[in-house]
């Protein structure tokens, strides 16, 4: 399932290095500046020098591009004060410089030990992202890491002009454990991994138009997908939001009575929908061609 260049297995620094043109990446506020979280000491928790996110600039086929990459293994890639502020600053720069941005999500959401700071950080990032897009800047999200893209991370992803997912890329506001804790195991059994994948995983998101490109779990596959997506327009304006309103209303109308992802895939007209989770990626793409819902820029 995972290749030698697995996106899922790689750390944030490996992903950035493999994604961009070799040697092109320059980090802003690198680990040597030791701008770690000022709040973890309250909980006697260890800090990381980059607070779990790398931001900087590199080139992609020679084109200048800003990049942020979350490290999902450090505190689940969660947003704290410094972590969030680095992404906010990058997006504010993107707006004034008119440079596109790649966000490599790998996050469980807001970091509970600094929950208030993390929550506002999400809001600040969303505002900076939307303002960049209204100025015509593309902001593309890449999702396929071990921590997934949960909570506030999923809301930032929802602001992106395009999303690239792999099968492993899970996108959800409430994580499986959160739903189970609040609503009971009858509502969501978080240990049922098959249920998690087909409800929140990359194949489902791609099928319903929640993501725009589907990549193999491979850093070079993500690079290829990013190059294709970046050729499109990412501007956000009133027309885009009117179209998104229609798109999402249509989705609720069409699939609102579904109980399970299989119901939705059946409705879409995919043949043998129960086989979808087990299909290799090329067969999956072949079988859903011309059937999946697409956002067509309405995001």
């Amino acid at each position: 399932m995972t290749s030698a260049n697995s996106w899922y297995e790689a750390g944030a620094r490996q992903r950035v290095a493999a994604l961009l043109d070799p040697g092109s990446f320059v980090e802003f506020i690198g680990p040597e500046q030791r701008e770690s979280s000022p709040h973890l000491a309250i909980f006697d928790l260890p800090e990381q020098f980059d607070d779990g996110i790398i931001v900087g600039r590199g080139t992609l086929e020679g084109r200048r591009i800003l990049v942020a990459a979350q490290e999902g293994r450090f505190m689940g890639g969660a947003f704290g004060e410094v972590h969030g502020a680095k992404l906010t600053g990058l997006l504010r720069a993107a707006r004034s410089l008119r440079e596109p941005v790649l966000i490599l999500f790998d996050t469980g959401g807001v970091r509970l030990q600094e929950a208030n700071a993390g929550e506002i950080a999400i809001a600040e990032i969303m505002r900076a992202l939307v303002e960049a897009r209204m100025a015509g800047v593309q902001v593309v999200g890449l999702i396929g890491g071990r921590a997934g893209c949960y909570g506030g991370g999923s809301l930032i992803a929802g602001c992106c002009s395009a999303l690239i997912v792999s099968e492993q890329g899970r996108i959800s506001v409430s994580g499986p454990e959160v739903i189970e804790t609040n609503r009971g195991v009858e509502e969501f059994d978080s240990r049922d991994r098959a249920l998690v994948w087909r409800t929140m995983g990359g194949k489902h998101r791609y099928l319903i138009g929640g993501a725009d490109a589907f990549a193999d779990d491979d850093v070079l596959a993500f690079r290829e997908a990013a190059l294709i997506v970046l050729a499109e327009n990412g501007r956000l304006d009133a027309d885009v939001l009117e179209a998104e309103q229609q798109r999402l209303e249509h989705r609720l109308h069409r699939f609102g009575k579904a109980h399970d992802a299989i119901d939705i895939w059946t409705d879409i007209g995919v043949s043998e929908p129960t086989e979808i989770p087990g299909l290799a990626n090329d067969e999956f793409l072949r079988r859903i061609a011309d059937k999946r819902e697409t956002a067509n820029g309405a995001r």
Binding site: A157, G158, C159, T199, R205, L236, E244, D260
Partner: peptide, 14 residues
Amino acid sequence: ELLGLSECLTHLAK
């Protein structure tokens, strides 16, 4: 979550 709550909430924010 099945229907894409993240997209709906974000749409409102946008």
